[in-house]
């Protein structure tokens, strides 16, 4: 899985796997054995990242999903992505040069 955030590209580390359940996404980090349960908006964003939506589209979708302004939706999206980065579920790739 990978997705663009502005000029930044996120991807999922090899060791991270996930499965969609009825109303949640279970994300497992093989390195630590930790399991993360994503529900609601977080589960939706995870699904949209698997579809490789670009960052502006993610903001638009999240705004529509939660009935937020674009600014509020972006703030929420940034927080979600930061949490996932901190938990090792996403990693930032170097943007391509030249």
């Amino acid at each position: 899985m990978s997705g663009e955030a502005g000029a930044v590209v996120f991807s999922c580390p090899e060791a991270v796997r996930w499965v969609e359940d009825a109303d949640r996404v279970l994300v497992v980090d093989d390195r630590s054995g930790e399991t993360h349960t994503l529900r609601g908006a977080e589960a939706a964003v995870w699904g949209w990242l698997t579809l490789a939506y670009p960052y502006p589209k993610l903001v638009q979708l999240l705004a529509a999903l939660l009935v937020l302004s674009s600014a509020d939706a972006e703030q929420r999206l940034v927080a979600i992505l930061q949490d996932w980065r901190a938990a090792g579920l996403l990693q930032m790739l170097e943007p391509p040069h030249g």
């Binding site: 109303d23 609601g40 939706a44 699904g47 579809l51 999903l65």
Partner: peptide
């Protein structure tokens, strides 16, 4: 992609 997530959220 939006409608499915929105409906799931509302249903929940």
């Amino acid at each position: 992609h939006l409608a499915v997530e929105y409906a799931a959220l509302r249903a929940r």
